[in-house]
Amino acid sequence: MNTTQVKPFSKDILHLENIEAVCDRIAEKLRKDVGQTLQRRGGVVGISGGIDSSVCLALSVKAFGPEKVTGIMLPEQDSSGDSKSLALKLAAKFGVETLEENITGALEGFGCYRRRDEAIARVVPDFDPAVDKSKIEIKQDISKNIPAIFSITVIKPDGEVISKLLPAKEYLQIVAATNFKQRTRMSMLYYHAERLHYAVIGTPNKHEVEQGFFVKYGDGGADVMPIGHLYKTQVYQLARHLGVPQEIIDRTPTTDTYTAEQTQEDFFYQLPFAEMDLIWYGWENQYHAGEVGEVMGRTAQEVENIYKSFERKKKTTEYLRMRPIF
């Protein structure tokens, strides 16, 4: 099939050729944005042991120097156990000071866990938050051209899995309650940023920003987002180049929000990152679905349906990227 663009679509199309120059450019821009535009003297980064925050911390160190970067760990009772050890390893590697702020108490004050668990129990009556694990996920196939609907999955201690479609009221309450986590983290990051006269370095990548996989005024609340223009596979490329610890690179990205283990793919994206990056690139650069499908081993119709899903997600989440209207 003939290409519809100047550059033929290929699996290497997103590969960054001169990674050193890319990192230098981002660091230079970060230095200028924080130092001149925002008039701050360094940066705080919330570090979770995930790939995005790790790359942001490494870029911040490159931009400001390690003495002007503070890594802040913000665990709560549902956080994964290895988040802290990975975050500490990262900070040690880049020579950055860390602080730990456990936000469980603040979340209890907001009623985060209680409100979430009440909503889950209305759908799964024998849900016991003391021993059961839970998560919400999208089960539909992204290539089938229907808007995403969330299900609740409860995992009992004996391994029994109960999964039900979430009614609107319960879905909205669960999301609203768990969003306290990201918003509390944002408040704590700003506390430290203001205390130090630093900027808050936001960690969302291009997919999170454009598909709306962030919480408004939560992890979407930051002063600067140095990887907001990078595809996930490019973030991994930067991680390898910048020397992010291998355990962090090898770790499957999770939401670290629900008690049951939950990958970002299950929760939101419905596609593996490598595939999503390429098809998203094809979509935003108007590559013909047939050409993309040929490279990705999918039919043109499937790619067309994934394009429509991207379009829907972008449109549905426009509200998250909007500033207050006045």
Partner: peptide, 10 residues
Amino acid sequence: DSMGLLFLIE
């Protein structure tokens, strides 16, 4: 959209 579908199902 997806919320619209969810409300429709209800």
